[in-house]
Computed example of a mutant assay.
Amino acid sequence: MTEQLTDYDSPWKEVIELYFPRFLEFFFTQAYAEIDWTRPYEFLDTELQQLEPNAEIGRRLVDKVAKVWLLDGEEAWVLVHVEVQGQYDSQFAERMYTYNYRLFDRHKKRVISLAVLADEQANWRPSSYSYQLGGCRVSLEFPVAKLLDYEQGWEILEQTTNPFGVIVMAHLKTKATQRNPENRLQWKLSLVRRLYERGYSREDIRELFRFIDWIMVLPKELALSFKTKVRSYEEADRMRYVTSIERLAKEEGIVENARESIITVLETRFGEVPSSIVEVINKIEEPSVLKMLHKSAIAIPSIAEFQQVLDSLTSGE
C-alpha cells in the first residue's frame, strides 16, 4: 500500500458537493452565516477552466466554485480550495488571489475565497497575498481551516454530528496509517461503526461509508477482512444501509475489467507486455489510478515510457 495511490481529490470533491452547507458550517462559520440557505446554490466547475484555461489540472488540489445568495439579497460566489495531498505550495496564496480577482472580473460579483489545508507542516498557514509597487498596494486575506489542528481537538470530531467530523477523522487517519495497514483497518472499522452509532440517516450512512471506503485503501487481504466485519455489523444491527458487500463486489469487477483493458491496449499497440508490468497493474486496486493508466496506454509513444509512468505511481510501494 502506498500513499501515492490514495485518491484524495475525487472523494473530497464529491462530499463538498453533497454536503456543501454542512461543509461551510463546519469549517467556515462566518461564510455560512452570511448565505441565504433557503435559496438554491449552484456549482459551476466550468468556471475553473475559464479562470485558468492553460493550467494543467493536478491531483493535489480540489477547487470548487458555487454561486450562492447572501442574506442581503445579493448574488455572490464561493471559491473553495482544498489542498488535499497535504504538501507545501509556495504559490498557494498567489493562486488564491488570482482566482479571486479573475472570478470578480468575469462576473462583477463579490467572491468568498476559502482554503482547507491538509498538509503536515504546522507553521504553514497561508492566509493572505499582497504586493505593493510605486505607492500602489493590492491584497487578499482569506479564511483557512487546517486539518492538522483537529488532531489536538479530536473530541470535537467525535462529538459532532456534522458529516465533516467523520470526514476529517477519515482523512487524518488515512495519512497517519500510511505505513501501517493493520492500524488503518482498525480505524476504518471504528469509523464505520461510528456511522451506525451517531444516528445518521440511511442516505448519509451510505455516502459517508463511500468516502471512508474510498479514501482508506487497504491491501487485498485486509480489504476482505474489512468486508467480513462490516457485514457482521450490518447483520447484527439489522441495518443493511450500506449494502457494502454487494457494492464492493461490483467495484471489484470494475477494477478487474480495468486491469484487463490496460493490458489489452498495451498488447495491441506494443506486442508482448513484460510480465513485470502486468504484475504491477494487477496489484492496483484504485479505479481512478487504473483509469489514468488506461488513458496513458492509449496515447503513450512507447512501452518504456509507460513503464516510467507506472514507476512514478508505485515507487512508494
Rank of each mutant, 00 (worst) to 15 (best):
E25L: 06
S90P: 04
F209M: 06
G134S: 12
V217P: 00
T161Q: 08
E14F: 12
A297G: 03
R59C: 02
I298S: 01
L71A: 07
V309Q: 11
G199H: 08
A249W: 07
E52W: 06
L79K: 05
V78D: 05
F27T: 04
Q121C: 00
F164Q: 02
K108Y: 14
P181S: 14
E158C: 08
T160F: 00
A66L: 05
A118W: 04
E246V: 11
N54V: 13
Q91Y: 13
Y196C: 08
P53R: 07
T6P: 01
I57D: 13
E75P: 00
P301S: 09
S296Q: 10
L18M: 06
Q132A: 12
R60F: 05
A304M: 07
A236K: 15
L248R: 11
L157M: 10
E203V: 04
T177M: 14
V78I: 13
V144W: 02
Y196S: 06
K250H: 15
I300E: 05
S312I: 02
H107A: 13
R184D: 03
I16K: 01
A249N: 10
V168R: 00
K227V: 05
A31M: 08
I35C: 06
S130V: 00
A299K: 11
T46A: 11
S275Q: 12
S315A: 11
E260G: 09
K67C: 07
Q152F: 14
V265A: 10
R137Y: 08
E203H: 06
W124D: 09
Q178Y: 05
R102K: 15
A236Y: 13
L266M: 11
P163Y: 04
V82D: 00
E14C: 09
V82K: 03
Y196R: 07
P11W: 03
W12R: 02
K229Y: 00
A145F: 00
Q186I: 12
S276E: 13
L103N: 02
T160P: 02
L293H: 06
R259I: 11
A115M: 08
L44D: 08
G271F: 12
F226G: 01
A236V: 10
E305W: 02
E285Q: 15
E14I: 10
V192W: 05
E42C: 00
E285I: 07
Y241C: 07
G199W: 09
Y131K: 13
P274M: 09
D237M: 14
P219D: 05
I212F: 02
F26L: 09
I156R: 14
K220N: 07
L114W: 02
E42M: 00
S201I: 06
R240E: 15
V217M: 13
T98Q: 15
I112R: 11
T268N: 14
A76F: 04
L266T: 09
R238Q: 14
E286N: 12
A297F: 08
V192H: 08
S113R: 00
E197G: 06
K188N: 07
E285R: 15
V82C: 12
Q49Y: 07
W214I: 00
G153Y: 11
Q178S: 14
L157R: 02
H294A: 09
E182Q: 14
S275C: 00
C136S: 10
T264P: 01
T314F: 09
V144Y: 03
E34G: 03
Y129E: 05
N180S: 15
Q121V: 10
D9N: 07
E120K: 11
F270A: 10
V78N: 04
A145I: 03
A33C: 02
Q85P: 01
D237C: 03
L266I: 10
Q152Y: 14
